[in-house]
C-alpha cells in the first residue's frame, strides 16, 4: 500500500492520527481515574485490561496500519496471538489444577 499513497490520502491519514492521539490521551486519563473507583479486584483488572486493549487496538490498527494490512501479515499475527494466549492460559490452568489436588 505504501507506494500508492496520494497526497490527499496521506493528509486524510494525518487527520486520523491526530484523532487517535486524542482518543489515546483520553483513555489514559480514564484508566488512571478508573483505578480510584471502589470496585473489586477482578472488576478492576477487567476494566483496566479492556481499556488497555482498546488503546492497543487503536495503536495497532491506525499507527501500524493493521486495518488495511495484507492478509499474510494478519494471519501470522493471528497465529502469534493464539499461541500467546496458549502460553498465558495453559500454565495458569495447570497451576490452578495443581492447587486443587
Amino acid at each position: 500500500m505504501s507506494t500508492e499513497h496520494s497526497k490527499e490520502s496521506i493528509q486524510e491519514h494525518i487527520r486520523v492520527y491526530i484523532m487517535v492521539f486524542g482518543a489515546l490521551a483520553v483513555l489514559t486519563v480514564i484508566t488512571v481515574l478508573a483505578s480510584f473507583l471502589n470496585v473489586s479486584t477482578s472488576e478492576a483488572i477487567f476494566l483496566a485490561l479492556i481499556i488497555a486493549s482498546v488503546k492497543a487496538s487503536l495503536v495497532a490498527g491506525y499507527f501500524m496500519h493493521l486495518i488495511s494490512e495484507k492478509s499474510i501479515i494478519i494471519s501470522i499475527l493471528l497465529l502469534t496471538v493464539f499461541f500467546f494466549f496458549v502460553m498465558i492460559f495453559l500454565p495458569l490452568i495447570s497451576y490452578t489444577d495443581h492447587a486443587n489436588i
Partner: peptide
C-alpha cells in the same frame, strides 16, 4: 507442538484434568 509441552511435567503433581 505448541500445546503438548506439559507431558514433560506429569510428575510435578499436575491435576487429572490437565
Amino acid at each position: 507442538s505448541f500445546i503438548v509441552w506439559a507431558h514433560h511435567m506429569f510428575l510435578t503433581g499436575m491435576g487429572q484434568a490437565m
